[in-house]
Design a protein around this nucleic acid. Structure first.
Lengths: 137, 137
DNA sequence: TTTACAAATCGTAATCATTACGATATACTT
DNA sequence: AAGTATATCGTAATGATTACGATTTGTAAA
């Protein structure tokens, strides 16, 4: 998902395009990583002093509902990143810099048959550690 | 992990055995499922009216640190269950009743080679859905 | 079994992320 | 340019979790 696709998607769903919404997209377009609501809030605060929490959280939810952002829960805090692709995938997440690497293997392929009497509804698979540039000493 | 093993473990680490600590073990021994701190608090409150949050959370952390409990984060809330085995495993978790089923396959076996230049530190794999007795209509 | 003291608990306040909402401002249609 | 639904502001509320001084209690030693 890039900025232009996101703007189109917003407008197709009848949402207004505001300067704040555009800057939120700019924020997430920066890097391939998960950010917290606080990260975004601080960025937005630097551009729009006194911006409301409501604006930040409302738009995070909106973007997530539209599939512009994907989210995960990490250390008791929701994290968001630009949605990176149409087909199903998972992520490695660096403990230090937070950058991610896509993993194109899905464990459900091997696991589904173990749960044949269960109705499967969702799953979560994430790998944590240190990326090549953040190797610990 | 059963109640007696947990008590032994506590004492080996120089912790005191209290009535509250024993009842926390009774609580988790009930079922193979994840409970919230609130679930435990309500149970304890029924036995010890006015029990402190501190007692509940302090002991949850202690039990987790000792490996008596395992934990996961679900819907922005930490959940705890009795540790169910010495060897590495994952869980299916029922959306309705919360009961779990152990999954003895670990995706890291297939994924590690994709991340050879990364230092892997941890991972999370969980499957969600409905168990045989909680099938939706 | 009494004593002594470290550990556990209580009572309550603080913190942190997130949600809620009435009042006001703004993007977009006509 | 005006009208209206939507977006934002300002601020308070909520819910989970943590913090901490005062008090109580389990346990080891006398």
């Amino acid at each position: 998902m890039n900025k232009q696709e996101a703007i189109t998607l917003l407008q197709e769903h009848g949402h207004k395009m505001t300067k704040r919404r555009e800057d939120i997209l700019n924020f997430f377009a920066q890097e391939d990583k998960y950010y917290t609501a606080k990260d975004l809030y601080q960025y937005m605060e630097s551009i729009y002093p006194g911006i409301s929490f409501d604006t930040v959280y409302r738009n995070l939810h909106l973007y997530h509902d539209l599939g512009i952002l994907e989210s995960t829960e990490l250390n008791a805090e929701k994290h968001f990143r630009m949605n990176c692709g149409s087909h199903h995938h998972h992520h490695f997440i660096c403990n230090t810099c937070g950058k991610t690497k896509k993993i194109n293997i899905c464990p459900m392929d091997d696991v589904a048959h173990l749960l044949s009497t269960y109705k499967i509804d969702g799953h979560k698979f994430e790998v944590y550690g240190f990326c090549p540039t953040c190797q610990p000493a």
